[in-house]
Write a protein that binds this DNA or RNA. Structure first.
Length: 780
DNA sequence: CCGATCACTTAGCATCCATCTG
DNA sequence: CAGATGGATGCTAAGTGATCGG
């Protein structure tokens, strides 16, 4: 908690200018401006049992079953800071620098071999010996070290038996699968499923939808053996993509104005103008890069005549158009029930027609069957291509993938597909090349599909496999810290970061995208070293923009050897030079693959996330908790993972307001309790003075009332804590992508929490395999 | 071997929509 | 019953890592 606060204070100071900006522009998120986050004091009124975990920001995260490795993360909720403050230091001048940076790193690449020799010698003379073995032990302050307790016997036993069962089952089945096959307990599952289905059926009856879905049995693909790695399907039939509606020209009374005068545009030019007009209120239309990119692309699409006239964006007036669209969307909102119903039916008809495909004889839901409509590109963060025109797709841009003997989807009238292919080694149905970066895009199946589910399952099995070898891998990379070879040292430290901090691998990027980094692409400017700070030794301070330009800010105490290495890596380098200049993600992954087949950098994220969830759940839940308390525990465990993985979100716009409302409710409740207690006292007194049946009943009644109110209060307080802690943390990403669903399912069963409390419908669909196959003794 | 390309996963934000509340 | 609210869903950008091909 202390750490977290510090990070907060620091960053809010650092970026105070950003805050100002925030208040001045309505649409900008106001993150990090609230130092009130996660006050432990808020919890004081809550049950003691909960307080144990109140300080969730300090996630002691011990990965795997190791006794000797003290992986321990203290991740402050990283104040997010996307576009403004932090980026200021990475402003447009920087982009140029950036270019030179990549050059220099490439050059360095070429020099590597020669350099290595000399550098290695250096290392040997300077610190290869045990000069700091004693100091090393001291390096991590005891406070920060939380040795993983040896597993208690109970779990050990369980694990063992589970393992044995596992093996036994595997034998019985004699299956060819490389990864573990499901454990099935049909009895148990059935009851659960029936319940679920009943509930759902009721709902559906009321709403009369998804009839077909109900009719067809769900495909339990996980009960079949593992399918081929290369061949993804044997038959595939679908309807092709759904094209967005054609452009509807503006009514004649709405005009675009240039230099104050109405100017009629051709439909094509007008359409692009509407893209801009629609986002007039958005902050990014004020950005230089955005305007420049937009105007360039727009002019390119104009006719010669238009281009002759329209020469400056500042002379363009889109306000009338803008107003028109605002009115239109208003209209849409105010539509009557009947009209809305019609629209809804239309949408579900569309889904019915385009939303499914037939894969190996099973009807599977498609993830995104609609082609992306044209518009203006808005990358995340400070993207150099923001504002560029994303062009309208023609059938001629689109490749269809399906079986040769299936009914080939028809191209819209008068058009042809770019190509129709029958490639069963890939999972996509439709692809096209997006014009902003020239990258391919795909239409693929929904997460509930076999193709996705199986892959997901496999992912978690790989992560579980890592659990077996993580000890030796950790030993290895620690040994690398003192290697004679610079490259190996860098590898060791990078791997340590990836493991301990769950950093992403950090592939190289080109200059055509936002300047964000991961582990291997960290630059000297992204870390600072503190030999001693805030009572801790050897602290590394990270401050960089990661994926989606989400800021990662963290102060981490590290082993002395790591610290020394980092200092060495930074020597004689400019801020914009790569920190790990000798290694790449490819090299890293190659090494990892040698340690364990299938292992890559990203597996560590999955592994550490899932392990953390399991550990936290074990720590935070007890049998005697109420359902609400268990839910809070789950959310906290989930949150620990989200913090570890730095999954952030903008604080909800209405956060302050709704929080206040909740607090008022709590206050009221407290008053009510006070009142009820008084009444109870009165009743008791009355009963003492003149005991009677009636008076004793009154006492009872009042007692109950107080009790009820107290319970209600507790619920509200739990809600408050949960929401406060969740302000800028996004739980969804980890839940969906990093946490082995079987951990959750097992926990739900063990503690009798209905699975619907944790997973909504979509999530239950995605994790159907896990829900069906998992017993309460599942161990990740 | 290595950069380019391709396929697939992971990500946050916007909008939709069901439910709650006053 | 309207309006607010917050979770669910839709959307598409932005990562990772395997494979391709020179």
């Amino acid at each position: 908690m202390k750490l977290m606060k510090e990070s907060h204070d620091k960053s809010s100071k650092k970026h105070s200018s950003r805050e100002q900006k925030c208040t001045s522009s309505s649409k900008v998120k106001q993150n990090g401006a609230h130092s009130s986050k996660m006050k432990p004091s808020d919890v004081t009124s809550i049950d003691e049992s909960l307080q144990v975990s109140a300080d969730i920001s300090k996630v002691k995260h011990i990965s795997g079953d190791t006794d000797e490795m003290d992986v321990n993360v203290t991740v402050g909720p990283v104040e997010r800071d996307q576009n403004d403050g932090h980026k200021k230091s990475h402003s447009s001048e920087k982009i140029n620098k950036h270019k030179s940076r990549s050059k220099s790193s490439k050059e360095r690449h070429n020099e590597k071999v020669q350099k290595d020799r000399t550098a290695d010698m250096d290392i040997k003379t300077e610190d290869h010996d045990g000069c700091d073995s004693a100091a090393d032990r001291q390096a991590s302050p005891p406070v920060k070290i939380k040795k993983k307790k040896v597993k208690d016997e109970k779990t050990d036993e369980k694990h063992d038996t589970a393992d044995k069962n596992h093996r036994a089952r595997k034998k019985r089945k004699n299956e060819s699968s490389e990864w573990d096959q499901p454990e099935k307990k049909p009895k148990k599952m059935k009851t659960n499923e029936e319940e679920e289905e009943e509930e759902e059926e009721e709902k559906k009856k009321e709403k009369m939808k998804d009839k077909k879905d109900e009719g067809t049995e769900k495909w339990k693909w996980w009960e079949e053996g593992k399918s081929s790695d290369t061949q993804k399907w044997t038959s595939l039939e679908h309807k092709g993509p759904y094209f967005p509606p054609e452009y509807e020209p503006l009514p004649s009374n709405i005009s675009f104005k240039y230099e104050g005068k109405p100017l009629k545009l051709t439909a094509q030019t007008e359409e692009i103008a509407t893209f801009y007009a629609k986002m007039l209120e958005h902050e990014y239309t004020t950005k230089d890069v955005f305007q420049k990119n937009f105007f360039n692309d727009w002019r390119e699409e104009m006719t010669k005549e238009e281009r002759k006239v329209i020469k400056s964006l500042s002379k363009c007036d889109f306000t009338e158009m803008h107003k028109y669209f605002v009115e239109k969307s208003e209209e849409r909102k105010n539509k009557s029930k009947e009209e809305k119903q019609v629209l809804k039916e239309e949408a579900s008809r569309l889904l019915e027609e385009y939303g499914f495909c037939l894969l190996d004889g099973h009807r599977e839901k498609i993830g995104n069957f609609k082609l992306e409509p044209p518009g203006l590109f808005r990358g995340r963060g400070e993207h150099p291509k923001m504002g560029k025109l994303k062009k309208r797709l023609q059938p001629e841009d689109v490749i269809i993938n399906c079986s040769a003997d299936s009914k080939i989807p028809e191209a819209p009238k008068g058009h042809k597909w770019k190509r129709v292919q029958h490639e069963n080694t890939v999972t996509w149905l439709v692809s096209w090349v997006e014009n902003i970066h020239g990258r391919p895009k795909y239409i693929m199946l929904n997460p509930s599909s076999k193709l996705k589910g199986e892959k997901d399952w496999q992912k978690y099995e790989t992560a579980r496999k890592l659990k077996m070898s993580v000890n030796s891998i950790r030993k290895e990379y620690k040994r690398d810290w003192t290697s004679r070879e610079m490259k190996t040292r860098q590898r060791g430290v990078a791997l340590y970061f990836i493991d301990k901090l769950a950093l992403r691998a950090g592939n190289e990027k080109d200059d055509e995208s936002a300047d964000t980094v991961g582990c291997c692409s960290l630059r000297v400017e992204h870390i600072s070293l503190h030999k001693r700070i805030d009572g801790q030794e050897f602290v590394v301070e990270f401050d960089f923009l990661g994926k989606d330009s989400i800021r990662y800010y963290n102060k981490v105490p590290v082993e002395k050897q790591v610290f020394k290495n980092l200092r060495r890596f930074m020597e004689h380098k400019d801020p914009e030079d790569d920190l790990f200049d000798r290694i790449t993600t490819v090299y890293l992954n190659k090494t990892l693959n040698e340690s364990m087949p299938g292992l890559t950098a990203k597996v560590f994220r999955t592994f550490n996330a899932s392990t953390t969830l399991q550990d936290q759940l074990r720590k935070l839940t007890t049998d005697d908790m109420t359902l609400e308390e268990k839910m809070l525990s789950y959310n906290r465990a989930n949150r620990a993972v989200a913090i570890l993985c730095n999954h952030q979100r903008a604080a909800p716009k209405t956060f302050e307001k709704s929080m206040q409302l909740l607090q008022e409710k709590i206050k009221k409740k407290k008053e009510q309790i006070e009142e009820a207690r008084k009444e109870l006292k009165g009743a008791k007194r009355a009963h003492k003075e003149t005991p009677s049946d009636k008076s004793s009943k009154l006492v009872e009644k009042n007692e109950k009332k107080v009790q009820n109110l107290c319970e209600q209060l507790k619920k509200l307080q739990l809600q408050e804590t949960d929401r406060e802690e969740n302000k800028v943390i996004a739980l969804g990403t980890s839940k969906l992508n990093y946490l082995d669903p079987r951990i959750t399912v097992a926990w739900c069963k063990k503690y009798q929490v209905p699975i619907e409390k944790i997973y909504n419908k979509t999530q239950r669909d995605k994790f159907a395999w896990a829900i069906d196959m998992t017993d309460d003794d599942f161990q990740f």
